[in-house]
Amino acid sequence: MAETFVDGRAGIDVGLVRGLVADQFPQWADLPVTPVEVDGWDNRTYRLGDRMTVRLPTAEGYVAAVDKESAWIPRLAPHLPVRVPPILGRGRPGRGYPYPWSVRGWLPGVTAGRAGLADLAGFAVELAGFLRALWSCDASGGPAAGEHSWWRGCSPAHYDDEARRCLAAVRGEFDTVRATAVWEAALAAEFKGDPVWFHGDIAPGNLLVADGRLTAVIDFGTSGVGDPACDLVIAWTVFDGESRRAFVDAVAQDDGMWARARGWALWKAMLVLEGAPAEVTAADCRRVIDAVLRDPAW
């Protein structure tokens, strides 16, 4: 039955989650299990009662995050200005589901992408504060960037072949001379600082908001210790104009960091555009690429 899960989400449903909880956490067996309204791709998440969630990796490549988050989120949490997911239990494979999984505390709020933020510049400053706090956490013994983080925190050079292929694919649609210059500047801006904690997926779906304020950051599955430039991609995916300037000023990083961040943003947008499953996704990717190429630094 393990083969059911090789391609990801098939076979993960309310019945499976209810059974796993009953088998391994009988104290919570009577609590209702319901899918969350907005789910991710790397993991499936279900509400467990009113105060907990169950989170299950959808494929082998996401399994390393279970133990990583269980070990490190509790150590990072006291040093961060907003809440992060409380880890309440680690589940074992069972009932045909082949991976470890976790039980976490529920964090209230809505994702930033659905919040309709009135003060985007203020939100940008709050997010910058979170990032600076995360980057300042003690990185001793933390997991060095690599396969477990999908190479976030490493040099963008890891994706050079892929980026070159994408640059060829968008020729005629964008200024690929300019785009190539952005990418090559990212490669040239070698990270020479001390490795620090990074989140690796600072995106609207991982930022929780209440009353217009950043209240929590979730999904540390791609986190690790290395170059935090990947955490700045949101400067082009979400922020623009005044809010981008506020973010740049508040996060206070050097030109090399921003050069690598532009490279990360360009690579990811081109990659997703290449296989965009829906027109709205393609439009978002084009918007990000255009924003990177119009950046005043270039």
Rank of each mutant, 00 (worst) to 15 (best):
E3G: 15
V6C: 05
D7F: 13
R18I: 00
R18K: 02
G19I: 09
P26F: 12
A29K: 09
T34F: 01
W41T: 12
D42F: 06
D42I: 06
R44F: 03
R47S: 01
M52E: 09
V54A: 14
P57E: 08
T58G: 04
Y62D: 02
V63K: 11
V63H: 11
A71S: 09
W72H: 12
P78W: 11
P78N: 06
H79Y: 12
P85M: 13
R90T: 05
R92K: 11
P93N: 01
G94V: 05
R95D: 12
G96E: 03
Y97I: 11
Y97D: 10
Y99N: 01
G105M: 09
G105A: 10
L107G: 00
A118E: 14
D119P: 14
A121M: 06
G122I: 12
V125Y: 04
L134K: 10
D138R: 02
S140W: 00
G142C: 11
S149G: 03
W150S: 15
S155M: 02
H158D: 06
D160M: 02
D161A: 13
A163I: 12
R165G: 15
V170R: 11
R171D: 15
D175E: 12
D175Y: 09
V182K: 14
W183K: 14
L187G: 04
V196M: 14
W197F: 03
G205D: 11
N206G: 09
G212Y: 08
L214Y: 11
A216M: 02
D219V: 13
G224M: 08
D227R: 14
P228L: 04
A229S: 15
C230E: 12
I234S: 07
T237W: 12
F239R: 07
D240P: 00
R244S: 10
A252G: 01
G256A: 12
A259D: 09
A259I: 01
R260M: 02
R262Y: 10
W264M: 00
E274S: 03
A276H: 02
T281A: 10
A283C: 10
A283R: 15
A283I: 10
R286S: 10
R287C: 11
I289H: 05
V292K: 13
A297C: 03
W298T: 13
W298C: 10
